[in-house]
Design a protein around this nucleic acid. Structure first.
Length: 106
DNA sequence: CCACTGACTACTT
DNA sequence: CAAGTAGCCAGTG
């Protein structure tokens, strides 16, 4: 049985629109557990396929991909770019532009 | 149930 | 700015 936090985190991640990204802490906070950023990483790592999560839309607080090359880094970056998300020359995503507030307009 | 692990974050040096 | 340390919580065995 998963905790309420986990289930909510799944919904949050699945609710991220294309062209937007969220940080681990952001997902955790929206799930009602600020500080549970690490759990989010576990969710993506262990349950992304089972729960059909857009794991590539979740990055670290610095707007960078936490994965290392040959670990999925290139894949995630390619997926993000295909959704219209641009990377800075530092290989970082512009969070001030692409960070999703978790508040769908309307 | 206990211990280990982890795609993190923030603070400190 | 880079590296190290501590705090954080939950899934898996």
């Amino acid at each position: 049985m998963l905790t309420p936090f986990t289930k909510r985190a799944l919904q949050v991640i699945k609710g991220i629109p294309e062209g937007k990204v969220l940080t681990y802490g952001g997902v955790a906070a929206l799930a009602g557990n600020p500080g549970g950023a690490r759990q989010v990483s576990r969710l993506l790592h262990s349950m992304s396929e089972k729960y059909d999560l857009p794991w590539h839309r979740v990055i670290n607080a610095k707007g960078k991909i936490s994965l290392k090359p040959s670990q999925g880094y290139e894949l995630q970056r390619a997926l993000l770019e295909s959704e219209g998300i641009g990377f800075s020359k530092n290989d970082t995503v512009d969070l001030s532009v692409y960070l999703w507030d978790g508040v769908p307009r309307c």
